[in-house]
């Protein structure tokens, strides 16, 4: 089918473009460009997580920033303890990314299990509001907890480490983020092709009909919600290391909104939608952000045009409605 070939081509362009431009910047000696593309990769990773809940399961979580923020705090707290020569979770020198990543994912997953257990009993506008309410609760908890910086956030003086790589070098951090993004996209594709994924997409259409074939909609939705939060939490840990700062602002509701915007711009439920959406968002931030403080105005305009004239986002606009898989 020509549509499918076009989507393969678009995916290849997005995956390789995201890799080759920073590679060029590495040779040309432009660390700023590498950092911009690392931001794209991390935002895309966070959105791949949300895309499982929102794109496949139709769960419009307006509180996914909280998992992004929690991941960031795990990275920040680990870095602070290591910097002060203290232990974290009983481990001395826990500033290893290979420790931080699973811890960030588990922390985000546990939080999502609790939040999901309550909020998934509702749907529609109530679900949106209750996820927002939980996220705001955690946000206000973070800014009022002085041990870990409170409103000022947590600076990371030395980035967390990865065996064999100096993560203070932009290219090294980028390639870690790019690899994790590709792994997450692979996981997304596997989930979508599995029985679990089919059931999840079916629930979005009609939970009662799914129950009639012997599947508990609640269990499937909760599992998807937790997996979704874990991936977003991992992205949060990477973002804290990139900006060398664990910020409570990463948990603010505007961040939740930005993740949803990325998915709508890129294409809801599309495999590489988050990459396309994140590229547009970060692109606007860099290009128009340099000209005006009000760059979001232009982003809003593009969002409006997408919703009015290109419902399926960039991926659907280029590759057509028929999805891979």
């Amino acid at each position: 089918m020509p549509d499918k070939r076009r989507e393969y081509a678009l995916n290849a362009v997005l995956a390789l473009g995201l890799l080759l431009v920073p590679l060029w910047a590495y040779w040309a000696g432009s660390p700023f460009t590498i950092t911009v593309f690392t931001r794209i990769a991390i935002f895309a990773l966070a959105a791949v997580g949300l895309n499982i809940a929102l794109g496949l399961g139709g769960m419009v979580s307006f509180g996914h920033a909280v998992y992004f923020g929690v991941g960031g705090y795990v990275a920040g707290i680990a870095a602070q303890h290591a910097f002060n020569g203290e232990t974290f979770l009983g481990i001395a020198g826990a500033n290893q990314m290979l420790i931080i990543w699973p811890v960030a994912m588990i922390a985000a997953g546990l939080l999502a299990a609790v939040i999901g257990a309550f909020s998934l009993r509702t749907s529609g506008i109530f679900f949106i509001m209750i996820t927002l309410a939980f996220a705001q609760m955690v946000y206000y908890f973070a800014i009022s907890w002085p041990t870990y910086g409170g409103e000022d956030g947590l600076p990371i003086y030395v980035r967390n480490t990865f065996p064999g790589l100096n993560t203070m070098r932009p290219w090294n951090l980028f390639i870690l983020c790019w690899c994790l993004l590709m792994l997450a996209i692979g996981a997304f594709a596997l989930i979508r092709a599995s029985r679990f994924g089919a059931a999840l997409m079916a629930i979005r259409q009609n939970p009662d009909r799914v129950a009639a074939v012997g599947i508990s909609p609640f269990g499937i939705k909760l599992a998807a919600f937790v997996i979704s939060a874990m991936i977003t939490g991992l992205a949060g840990a990477l973002m804290a290391d990139l900006s060398r700062f664990a910020s409570p602002a990463a948990m603010a509701w505007t961040m939740s909104g930005e993740l949803i915007v990325i998915i709508i711009l890129g294409g809801t439920g599309r495999l590489f939608g988050p990459v396309a959406g994140a590229a547009v968002l970060v692109g606007f931030e860099v290009i128009f952000g340099g000209m005006t403080e009000h760059w979001r105005l232009w982003l809003g305009l593009v969002l409006l045009l997408t919703v009015l004239f290109a419902r399926g986002g960039i991926v659907t606009l280029i590759a057509g409605r028929e999805r891979l898989g």
Partner: peptide
């Protein structure tokens, strides 16, 4: 196992996805 009135399949899923979603 219910075959509901009005052939209610999961409209946006493919034939295979409809089937594997229900598999036991």
């Amino acid at each position: 196992g219910l075959v509901p009135e009005g052939r209610r399949c999961f409209a946006t899923l493919t034939v295979t996805e409809n089937l594997i979603a229900a598999a036991r």
